[in-house]
């Protein structure tokens, strides 16, 4: 009601000042958004430039808006050793194999759970939801992985994350909303459930499954804790564990950077090496990101609506 009174006084303002205040508001909005964008990007951008600059420029300059004395030496250095490449290999393995298994098992489980006629459906859902609400925690999880003999095995980072309850439920909801008629008629035609799942349900749900696959893949790519908890052999460290050691704890010897290098090397420095290592780990993600961003957003919105 007060809004109405406000607007009537507003109407009487001369056109000119209204245009001005709109333009001012516009400028402020664009300005603030630009600032937020810069805040998001600047630390990353600075690090990219540090990784591509010569050590003395990095030491001199405050903020690097562009590479100074452009050089790829830091990247050449970090990929000269085996450690980073090996960790990349580990992470690529758990991402590819892990995501494939995630998708297979999650879709296979989501389909029966989407069938309202399945006997015991309620009970199975309850059985699954309990694990969502209550988790045993870090130590019992560790004891289990150890007694399964998975310490120092890459599978310790794959099996414990096989099914994400949240994604399972999202996918089940998605399957539930598929048009019944097609599935029903296939069943009448005598197709097996397996065929219905793989030839009808999954092809009809590709966008949802792709979105889920991307979420799973990102979580494998970013796998950190299971690497810390279960992998003690540095040769089997996933990327994030190596990154923590090199970038955050500055254990540069992990990546073949000796004390001798620190004083006798003019091409690279501690800072440029750390910058290059962290940026190298983002590159695959950054290359993929523009293509998949659309799906991520759709997936979230999808989930929000289906809730």
């Amino acid at each position: 009601m007060s809004a109405h009174i406000d607007t009537s006084t507003y109407e009487e303002q001369p056109l000119r000042s209204r245009w001005h205040s709109n333009r001012l508001a516009e400028t402020i909005i664009y300005g603030v958004l630009l600032l937020l964008g810069i805040i998001s990007l600047l630390p990353i951008w600075h690090t990219v430039n540090a990784s591509l600059s010569s050590p003395e420029k990095v030491a001199q300059a405050v903020l690097l808006l562009w590479p100074q004395d452009f050089t790829l030496d830091s990247y050449i250095f970090i990929f000269k050793g085996e450690a980073l490449i090996r960790s990349f290999g580990v992470t690529v393995f758990i991402t590819v194999v892990g995501t494939a298994l995630n998708l297979l098992v999650t879709s296979a489980a989501a389909y029966p759970l989407s069938r309202r006629d399945l006997p015991g459906r309620q009970f199975i859902m309850l059985f699954i939801m309990v694990t969502f609400v209550f988790s045993a925690g870090i130590v019992p999880g560790f004891i289990l992985v150890r007694s399964l003999g998975l310490i120092n095995s890459l599978w310790a980072m794959i099996w414990p994350t096989l099914v994400n309850v949240f994604y399972l439920i999202l996918l089940r909801n998605f399957f539930e909303n598929l048009p019944d008629a097609v599935i029903e008629s296939a069943r009448m035609d005598g197709s097996s459930e397996l065929r219905i799942l793989f030839q009808i349900v999954i092809p009809m749900s590709l966008p949802a499954i792709a979105t889920m696959g991307l979420f799973y893949a990102v979580s494998h790519w970013n796998e950190f804790f299971r690497g810390i908890f279960y992998i003690y052999d540095p040769a089997k460290w996933p990327l994030q564990v190596l990154l923590r050691s090199v970038v955050i704890q500055a254990n540069l010897n992990e990546i073949g950077f000796s004390n001798q290098d620190m004083y006798g090397n003019a091409q690279v420095s501690q800072l440029t090496i750390r910058a290059a290592t962290v940026i190298a780990a983002i590159v695959p993600m950054a290359l993929l990101y523009p293509f998949v961003q659309r799906y991520f957003v759709q997936g979230i919105v999808l989930g929000a609506e289906k809730g």
Binding site: P43, H46, A50, V218, F224, R244, V247, I248, V278
Partner: peptide, 14 residues
């Protein structure tokens, strides 16, 4: 989409 190791690492450098 970046892990905290990566983002935290960038912040430590920043």
């Amino acid at each position: 989409f970046l892990s905290w190791v990566v983002y935290g690492g960038i912040m430590v450098l920043f």
